[in-house]
């Protein structure tokens, strides 16, 4: 429970603005879920979230405070920046999940795998062979691009096919993340811990796959 810094009324919905007196709250400790008036969980209703973002934007945006005092303008700026940071983070399922886990005290991404030697560069063990082959294809295509030669059509075709396969793997990871996220939302403490461990590993795998897919797209894009 949090209270308005101005009228002391308990805050409902978004903690960025008081429904009672209308005061914009200046509180850097408000988290993204609180900012958008959402429960701290993985599952959110995208349409509700967007509606709330628009409603709060109308209320908080610096454009609404162009004639207000310097202090009110500062509050508006800080609150809107926090609102936008929250919207950017929560609208996307993956960044939302990462944020949720961090908020719950888990180490995610670089903090988890270690800076520089993160999972982004180490292929998941079950994919070693396929990744090796993919990298060969990528290398071949890049070489021919560098030399200004026309790309070998067979290589392009193979690479495109591999790209599609990796994209479907990425989709599978996203589905698995959503399933674990649902477990988190509904489960008891023990189930949550298990889901968190799963999700952290899935996120590592996802980062690796995403980078590969991006490389494939870029290389194919340059060949087109």
């Amino acid at each position: 429970m949090n209270h308005c810094t101005s009228c002391q009324k308990a805050l409902e919905g978004s903690w960025l603005v008081c429904t009672g007196c209308g005061a914009v709250q200046r509180n850097a400790a408000i988290d993204y879920f609180q900012a958008l008036g959402q429960e701290r969980r993985f599952g959110v209703n995208a349409a509700t979230l967007e509606r709330e973002f628009h409603r709060l934007s109308r209320r908080l945006h610096p454009d609404r405070f162009a004639r207000a005092s310097a202090e009110e303008q500062q509050n508006s700026l800080a609150a809107t920046a926090l609102l936008n940071d929250a919207w950017r983070t929560l609208r996307d399922p993956v960044t939302r999940l990462e944020y949720l886990l961090k908020l719950e005290g888990y180490a995610v991404g670089e903090e988890h795998a270690g800076k520089g030697k993160s999972a982004e560069r180490q292929p998941p063990s079950d994919l070693l062979e396929e990744v090796f082959e993919l990298n060969m294809q990528l290398e071949e295509l890049r070489m021919s691009q560098k030399m200004g030669e026309a790309a070998d059509e067979a290589v392009v075709k193979d690479l495109a096919a591999t790209g599609v396969r990796f994209e479907s793997m990425l989709q599978a990871v996203d589905d698995a993340l959503a399933a674990e996220g649902a477990k988190w939302d509904t489960g008891a403490a023990e189930a949550r811990t298990g889901a968190a461990t799963q999700m952290i590993q899935l996120l590592d795998r996802r980062r690796y796959l995403r980078n590969l897919v991006r490389d494939v797209r870029e290389t194919l894009g340059a060949a087109a």
Partner: peptide
């Protein structure tokens, strides 16, 4: 393409 105001 982050909506502004934005902070980090």
């Amino acid at each position: 393409n982050s909506t502004i105001p934005a902070s980090a």
